[in-house]
């Protein structure tokens, strides 16, 4: 009897493996943890989209919770994301833009066409700040707390559902800290 039970071991291993691997099928391969969470917003010194002479740095993110959105005129999903960002601004959320690998003329045209929810746009034509933020495609969104620490990282497009379900609750959460 004991020997018979031993014969079931391969079946048990198979079932375990099957369950484990089946779960893997439903994982989103592009979803992954951000390396930036709970870290300070990287140091930078760049001009703004509005003013080539201006200089802004990481202190821009201190004092209140900000939603930092990485966008570019060349990015089609950024256009689809603009209504959601405008809605966030209507909710009183402070939005900071990073105009990523773009030209001033095109970016300004973009904001005229699709609206401008941003308090300030950091102009990052070479993508250096984007690189330090681990941005590998626009749009990407970060929530930075009042101490300038990154608390949330959203890769890809923010859907209208995300605004209510994810972004606003996260902003409120970090405001109350």
């Amino acid at each position: 009897m004991k020997r018979r039970l031993l014969l079931l071991i391969p079946l048990a291993i198979f079932v375990l493996l099957a369950v484990f691997l089946y779960q893997g099928l439903s994982l989103n391969p592009s979803a992954r943890e951000s390396a930036l969470l709970a870290r300070e917003f990287p140091d930078f010194e760049l001009s703004t989209l509005a003013d080539p002479e201006a200089r802004v740095d990481e202190s821009l993110l201190e004092g209140q919770v900000s939603v930092v959105n990485v966008w570019g005129e060349w990015c089609p999903t950024c256009k689809q994301e603009m209504p959601q960002l405008l809605a966030l601004a209507d909710h009183g959320v402070r939005l900071i833009g990073i105009d990523y690998k773009d030209t001033r003329a095109k970016a300004r045209e973009f904001l005229t066409t699709y609206g401008n929810p941003f308090e300030v746009n950091i102009f990052d034509p070479d993508g250096t700040l984007g690189f330090d933020l681990g941005v590998y495609g626009a749009p990407e969104t970060f929530i930075v707390d009042a101490e300038g620490v990154i608390r949330y990282h959203h890769t890809g497009y923010i859907t209208p559902e995300d605004v209510e379900r994810v972004i606003l609750p996260e902003v409120r959460k970090w405001r109350s800290q």
Binding site: R32, E33, A35, F131, D132, G134
Partner: peptide, 8 residues
């Protein structure tokens, strides 16, 4: 690279 893009 890991500091920016993670263990991935």
């Amino acid at each position: 690279m890991v500091r920016r893009f993670g263990d991935y």
